[in-house]
Nucleic acid binder design. Structure first.
Length: 618
RNA sequence: GGGUGCGUAACUCAGUUGGAUAGAGUAGCUGCCUUCUAAGCAGUUUGUCACAGGUUCGAGUCCUGUCGCACCCGCCA
């Protein structure tokens, strides 16, 4: 058992405890086993390829993708060109043979062959209508849970105890949460781990300072209110730097702490508790749920990691440090680079901890997939840790370990984001500022529009808009690149921003209010009519949700979901502009109400998966 | 010196296993509110996809080289 298994840190949430999904996302047992449109089309192509060219072509990827341009239809297959060489036939002829064997009457209009051999497909309105009906049933908008659920560990956020969360933790926290939400929605069993920095040499200094300033704290329950931890940390650091005796006491404190000394452990615990309270405020504000399992959790396993590596013959002692030399990495002199797992002073470092954590997550948590949402600067580190874990046999072939890297948050000058005073930006301050700016925008708008709203409405709206803006701005960029943080751009009311998407949702709710509509009471058997161009375009986009979620779950790129939702909002707004809803004659009116409802529900679900709440009015 | 990532419109960025004329959004200009919130919609201007080669039916995407930027490179995490 772990030395710290008594700790509430660990006991709070057992691994892979059943995730309580909101009721609205429970699978609907009556939903048929129908696959996504793309999956169905692929299936039909596979059959046509086999029928046309024999079984040796079974399983050929039909290279089906959404068309690059709507005038080519909805989907295109590029397979004919790719088969020209192996079949030694002209691509157009191959395309013709495929098309002649293709049975897709129920889904598409007759396929067209264009240019060198593109096969263009256009979905039939009748098919779209049945798909939309299907989305209406159940509460998952037609998205089936995965047939192959996995145990997935998502390691994200990971701030350091006794320090404050700053802008550097923003991306990991937001992106990690979104990835976890998406995988959970797909039906995977997700363990969200907060690998906090709660162990290390800095604790000697902090404990020593704590003893100096709050001697009672260690003997009296609840005697401690450190207040600003950052100030505390700075003062401790100052003492450490200027006083030799203090420095020596700190070194001693680390030793006693690691030896399990009761008083030192109590001091450590107090510091962790204090930090945890501060972190929790931010997690609450951001609506993020995490299971804390810090570095200290693996402390008792570190010696075993090293001895196992030794036993496996991977360990090399070099200049007093115990290392594993990794393949494919060299240092400045071109010599092989070691991954140090035990320092020359006998201490362990983060590589050791990461190896122990990886092993534990696979052996004890039974993880099938390990996802590390950590900045791109640590790519080498993870590549090395994964390599060593593979060579040690701890990371088997059937388990996937992925580093999900992300770039830096930069200021508008393109440099690392700093305050005017040149300090690191506190995450709390950053979020407060976003909310304050959102509030100012809202109040200005209320004034120009001569609207009266309650203080409660203003508080809630500005908070949700402000936080959404921060999250969406981050998630809507391809995470691998750096991104430039700009309040003005993220809070902008137009463009690919959270407020734009929220507004599309609000418009639907506005229609419902105006017309006294209860979407839940709309008869699900009402026929959906897709006549106007904007209706068709909207419908085609709506039925693509499940494909996008599959893509995002595979690539772990939430910006693609953002792109989908932005385009959906644009298409909804075009529909809204062209098609009157409440004034339309029945049964068109109900049909359009259904399109509105599906649009809103899709936006709501999509934003939920990004960790963003919607508003009924704004 | 080595490694990784990036370089796309004036700005911020997409670009899905290589596919058709490289796209959005901002900013600029022009229209559209007696009608479900105009926080909207429509139209319009903008490209040496860093550069040079190569691979092939086809390259922003793959390969090689060059330049530029960022990050990483033995006991911090």
């Amino acid at each position: 058992m772990s030395l710290f298994s008594r700790s509430p840190i660990v006991d709070r949430s057992p691994p892979f405890d059943t995730v309580e999904l909101p009721v609205c996302f429970r699978a609907n047992p009556t939903t048929s086993e129908m696959a996504s449109t793309l999956a169905q089309l692929k299936n039909r192509f596979d059959r046509a390829l086999t029928a046309a060219f024999g079984t040796q072509l079974s399983g050929t990827d039909p290279l089906l993708v959404p068309t690059s341009n709507p005038k080519f239809g909805d989907y295109q297959s590029n397979v004919a060109m790719s088969l020209a060489k192996p079949l030694k036939q002209a691509p157009r002829s191959i395309a013709a043979q495929i098309v002649s064997h293709l049975e897709i009457d129920d889904l598409c209009a007759p396929p067209e062959i264009a240019r060198p051999g593109f096969i263009n497909l256009t979905l039939k309105p009748a098919y779209l209508e049945t798909q939309l009906q299907r989305m209406l049933q159940g509460d998952r908008l037609g998205v089936e849970p995965t047939p192959h659920p996995q145990h997935v560990v998502v390691d994200f956020s990971s701030p350091n105890i006794a320090k404050e969360m700053h802008v550097g933790h923003l991306r990991s926290t937001i992106i990690g949460d979104s990835i976890a939400r998406i995988l959970e929605f797909q039906g995977h069993d997700v363990l969200r781990l907060n690998h906090v920095g709660d162990w290390g040499t800095q604790f000697g200094m902090l404990i020593t300072y704590l003893r100096e300033v709050y001697p009672d704290a260690l003997t009296t329950a609840d005697a401690l209110d450190i207040g600003d931890l950052v100030a505390f940390y700075k003062k401790a650091k100052q003492r450490f730097d200027e006083d030799e005796d203090f420095k020596e006491a700190s070194r001693q404190a680390v030793v006693t702490l690691q030896a399990g000394d009761e008083t030192a452990r109590r001091a450590w615990q107090l510091l962790c508790d204090q930090s945890r309270r501060e972190f929790q405020k931010i997690y609450d504000l951001l609506d993020i749920r995490l299971t804390e399992r810090g570095e200290s959790f693996y402390n008792s396993q570190l010696a075993d990691v090293v001895s196992e590596l030794d036993r496996l013959g991977l360990l090399v002692e070099d200049a007093g440090a115990k290392c594993v030399f990794v393949e494919g990495f060299t240092n400045k002199e071109g010599k092989p680079l070691p991954l140090i797992v035990q320092k020359s002073d006998g201490g362990y470092n983060y590589a050791t901890t990461d190896l122990a954590a990886l092993r534990y997550r696979i052996e004890k948590d039974n993880a099938d997939r390990l996802i590390y949402v950590v900045d791109a600067g640590q790519s080498n580190h993870f590549a090395q840790v994964f390599q060593v874990a593979k060579r040690a046999g701890w990371l088997p072939e059937n388990v996937e370990a992925i580093h999900v890297p992300f770039g830096l948050v930069q200021g508008e000058d393109g440099k690392k984001l700093k305050t005017r005073a040149g300090e690191t930006v506190r995450l709390q301050d950053l979020l407060d500022e976003a909310i304050a700016r959102s509030r100012a925008d809202l109040e200005k708008r209320l004034q120009t529009e001569n609207r009266q709203e309650t203080e409660e409405f203003i508080d809630r709206t500005s908070k949700i808009v402000g936080l959404s803006a921060v999250k969406y701005a981050d998630l809507s960029q391809n995470r691998t690149s750096n991104y430039i943080f700009s309040y003005d751009k993220m809070l902008a009311l137009q463009g690919n921003t959270a407020p734009y998407l929220l507004y599309a949702y609000v418009r639907v709710q506005g229609i419902a209010r105006k017309g006294g509509i209860d979407f839940e009471k709309i008869a699900a058997n009402t026929p959906i009519q897709l006549q106007e161009e904007t209706e068709l375009t909207l419908a085609k986009h709506l039925i693509g949700l499940s494909e996008i979620l599959d893509d995002v779950a595979a690539d772990l790129l939430p910006n693609r979901l953002c792109q989908y939702l932005f385009e959906l909002s644009q298409k909804f707004n075009q529909f809204y502009d062209k098609c009157p809803v409440l004034q339309a004659e029945e049964p068109l009116r109900t049909s359009r109400l259904i399109l509105c409802d599906l649009s809103a529900r899709t936006i709501k679900l999509g934003l939920f998966l990004l960790g963003i709440q919607v508003l009924e009015r704004m």
